[in-house]
Computed example of a mutant assay.
Amino acid sequence: DAIAVEDFRPKFLARTTMARKAADATIGASKMALIEMGRKHGRDVRLVHPAHTTMDCASCGARTKHALPLSERTYTCTACAVVSPRDKNSARVMLVRAGLTPAGVEGARPLGALLPEAA
């Protein structure tokens, strides 16, 4: 029903001006296609700022003091002691930032999680 995606801007990937323009055009076209397909199929697509998604805790919102190295695949929160895979924690952080309710342990949303409130 809803999709949260990083608003990715790949400034660090290109070394030359021509490569940078090509990367910007490709990412821009991909974002436009995703948003258009979401609109076509009645999905809510939300772009999320990507800063600190791997450093924030999805449960309590605390931020780690240091960046996790890429070799470390498990995120452990120092504030609330939650342990989860790094990628799943980042995905949950993006959902929370987008204002969506993350799916539970079984992969099912709580009843009425994305339903509009009745007036």
Rank of each mutant, 00 (worst) to 15 (best):
P10I: 13
P10E: 02
P10K: 04
K11I: 11
K11T: 05
F12R: 14
L13G: 03
R15Y: 04
T16Q: 00
T17L: 03
T17H: 01
M18I: 05
M18V: 08
M18P: 00
M18Q: 05
A19T: 07
A22C: 09
A23D: 07
A23I: 14
A23V: 13
D24T: 10
A25K: 12
A25F: 11
T26V: 15
T26F: 10
T26E: 11
T26M: 12
I27M: 09
I27C: 09
I27W: 15
G28P: 03
G28Q: 05
G28S: 12
S30D: 05
S30V: 13
K31Q: 14
K31C: 07
M32K: 11
M32D: 11
M32H: 09
M32E: 12
A33Y: 02
A33Q: 12
A33V: 06
L34I: 05
L34C: 08
I35T: 13
E36R: 11
E36Y: 12
E36H: 09
E36T: 09
E36P: 00
G38P: 04
R39C: 06
K40E: 06
K40P: 01
K40D: 05
H41N: 11
G42F: 09
R43W: 04
R43S: 10
R43H: 07
R43V: 06
R43M: 09
D44Y: 04
D44T: 13
D44W: 04
V45F: 02
R46D: 01
L47P: 07
V48F: 01
V48M: 02
V48Q: 02
V48R: 00
H49Q: 06
H49I: 01
P50C: 06
P50L: 02
P50E: 00
P50V: 07
P50H: 03
A51Y: 02
A51C: 05
A51E: 03
A51K: 05
H52D: 08
H52M: 06
T53Q: 00
M55H: 06
M55S: 15
D56S: 09
C57N: 08
C57E: 02
C57D: 06
S59L: 12
S59F: 04
C60L: 08
C60P: 02
G61V: 08
A62G: 04
A62K: 04
R63I: 10
T64K: 15
T64L: 15
K65F: 07
K65D: 14
H66Y: 13
H66I: 13
A67D: 13
L68P: 04
L68Y: 15
P69D: 15
S71T: 15
S71W: 14
E72I: 14
R73P: 06
R73Q: 10
T74A: 07
T74V: 14
T76G: 10
C77N: 13
T78S: 15
T78W: 14
A79F: 00
A79H: 11
C80S: 07
A81N: 14
A81C: 13
V83H: 10
V83N: 03
V83P: 00
V83F: 08
S84F: 06
S84A: 12
P85N: 15
R86L: 10
D87P: 01
D87E: 04
K88E: 12
N89M: 05
